[in-house]
């Protein structure tokens, strides 16, 4: 059943600008550094002997914001597909379980974000090489900075999806999304327990993997809670 639902979902996101956003996100993040390094390459090279590491840090300064913003916009686009003409009732009157419908939405969003992450990795690598940073390419760090934020942001994804799927008034998920983006933007100054801070990969032990595990665990929990609530409710 999931296979059928997923292929239907991918059909429905055509012409919605969803693919465009998926590609635009990572391009945007790397483009910021293109400007940064374009304007003051020599200065930035002088800042740190580990030029690759410094470059990756710079890239990462925009990734959390991009991913949270991306989640908010993508979930809003995704749910608008069903909300626009209340197609939920048509979809759910088909022989599909509500759980699998919810799972298919979550899966499509996760896949899109993963594709963004892969693209981020490729663009980061390509621009890094073109900068001639010297030394070995730190594939380790490249992978971390490309994929860790995705896992750390899963709780935000689960929360936004739930809000978008159950709210009759779409102002609710949009408000929640805007607050989330602001919290991520101001993440450095905020306490560690806020899920919107997690994509920054900061914690008092300086172990980014903690954010990944916490993100995946909490994300799974929030996903399950959201799905149970969605299943329990009457269809809009």
């Amino acid at each position: 059943m999931m296979g059928k639902l997923l292929s239907a979902e991918f059909m429905k996101i055509k012409r919605k600008g969803i693919w465009f956003l998926t590609v635009l996100g990572p391009i945007g993040v790397v483009a910021m550094q293109m400007v940064n390094y374009g304007v003051r390459k020599d200065y930035l090279f002088g800042q740190n002997d580990d030029r690759w590491g410094y470059y990756l840090d710079n890239i990462h300064s925009f990734t959390p914001l991009a991913i949270v913003l991306g989640i908010v916009i993508l979930t809003s686009f995704m749910s608008s597909i069903e909300n626009e003409t209340n197609a939920w009732k048509q979809l759910m009157a088909l022989p599909v379980s509500k759980m699998s419908v919810y799972l298919s939405k979550f899966t499509v969003l996760s896949l899109l974000l993963l594709i963004s992450s892969v693209l981020l990795l490729l663009f980061t690598l390509a621009f890094g090489i073109s900068l001639d940073l010297g030394g070995e390419i730190p594939y380790d760090g490249l992978l971390k900075y490309s994929f860790y934020p995705f896992f750390a942001a899963l709780p935000v994804l689960a929360l936004q999806l739930w809000a978008a799927a159950v709210s009759v008034n779409q102002g609710v998920p949009i408000t929640l999304g805007i607050v989330g983006v602001i919290l991520t933007y101001a993440g450095y100054a905020l306490p560690d327990w806020l899920i919107w801070k997690w994509p920054l990969l900061l914690n008092e032990w300086e172990e980014p993997i903690i954010n990944v595990l916490l993100g995946a665990g909490t994300g799974l929990f929030l996903y399950a809670a959201g799905m149970i609530d969605f299943v329990r409710r009457d269809v809009k």
């Binding site: 055509k14 197609a87 048509q90 022989p95």
Partner: peptide, 23 residues
């Protein structure tokens, strides 16, 4: 049920195809 639901950005055939894949 009630007013018809559809996906406005898709063609009539694509709309039906999205449902056909499931049924």
């Amino acid at each position: 049920v009630e007013s018809p639901s559809y996906y406005p950005h898709l063609t009539a055939k694509e709309n039906l195809e999205a449902l056909r894949k499931i049924v």
